[in-house]
Computed example of a mutant assay.
Amino acid sequence: MADAHRPDKDKEQDAVRHPAELVAFSKVKAGDTVIDVWPGKGYWSRLFSPVVGAKGKVYAYVPAEIVDMKSDPMGIAKAFAAEPGYGNIEAISDPLAQQPPPDMQNKFDVVWTFENYHDLHDSFMKGASVDGFNQAVFKLLKPGGYYIIVDHAAAKGQGLKNTEDLHRIEEATVKAEVEKAGFVLDEESKLLASTTDDHTLKVFDPAVKGKTDRFMLRFRKPAK
């Protein structure tokens, strides 16, 4: 967090994102190879970069299904990867559910996605398979590697019903989808949970923005 290269716009989000606790929860360490899925403006990629250090690598992964968005997510990723002090960040893009070739399997230590897993189910993803994506993540990770998902909680029983309108997903649904790919739940945290969020508002609504009920899940690829 004290990295001198971090922009002020990132530091301004620290109070609601709890970066020290979340980076610790991710288990990212020196020398690791990390994939930051749907990296946005680079907040987490910039944090992981000094943690993994010169011997590590951070891949800012932009799903190919969204590269044509007006916001130009790939252009943004390439821009923050080129910032001074972040030479170990590389922006990459592939189709969401593309299965990795043999030489890329069992190579990564951590796959991370923050408040974007629900978007993988949305119609603008052009029918990409979330099951296929989770299977690809399983193949990419080393045995014992971690898959971390932080997202906005939907009400119990809502499943995938609110991924597009409210940008929320039910925690139990995420667990079932990821475990289906072969992962085991390693740890969950209530650090970002909120009892004042009744799950009925869009996450961008000023009444709940930055204060939504969010779940933190860390899955592990079995060592054997």
Rank of each mutant, 00 (worst) to 15 (best):
D3K: 03
A4H: 05
H5E: 04
Q13T: 10
Q13D: 05
Q13C: 07
Q13Y: 04
D14C: 08
D14I: 06
V16H: 07
P19H: 12
A20C: 10
V23G: 00
F25S: 00
V28Y: 06
A30K: 15
D32R: 00
I35V: 13
D36W: 02
G40F: 04
K41L: 08
K41C: 07
K41R: 09
G42A: 03
Y43A: 07
W44K: 03
V52Y: 10
V52T: 12
V52I: 11
K55N: 15
K55W: 14
K57P: 07
V62H: 01
E65W: 09
I66G: 05
D68I: 12
K70V: 10
P73T: 15
P73A: 13
P73K: 13
E83Q: 14
E90Y: 01
A91H: 04
A91M: 07
S93V: 11
D94Q: 12
P95R: 15
Q98Y: 05
Q99E: 06
M104T: 13
E115H: 09
N116Q: 13
N116L: 11
D119K: 09
H121R: 06
D122W: 11
S123N: 04
F124D: 15
A128K: 08
V130W: 01
Q135L: 04
A136L: 05
I148Q: 06
A153T: 10
A155S: 04
G159P: 12
K161P: 08
K161C: 00
N162F: 07
T163V: 11
T163R: 01
E164T: 10
D165G: 04
D165T: 15
D165Q: 07
H167D: 11
I169K: 03
E170W: 00
E170D: 01
E179W: 06
A181F: 06
G182M: 01
D186L: 15
E188L: 00
E188A: 02
A193T: 03
T196F: 11
D197W: 03
H199P: 01
H199C: 03
L201E: 10
F204L: 13
P206D: 13
P206C: 10
A207G: 09
K209L: 11
K211M: 08
T212L: 13
R214I: 08
F215A: 05
R218K: 15
R218M: 08
R218H: 11
R218Y: 12
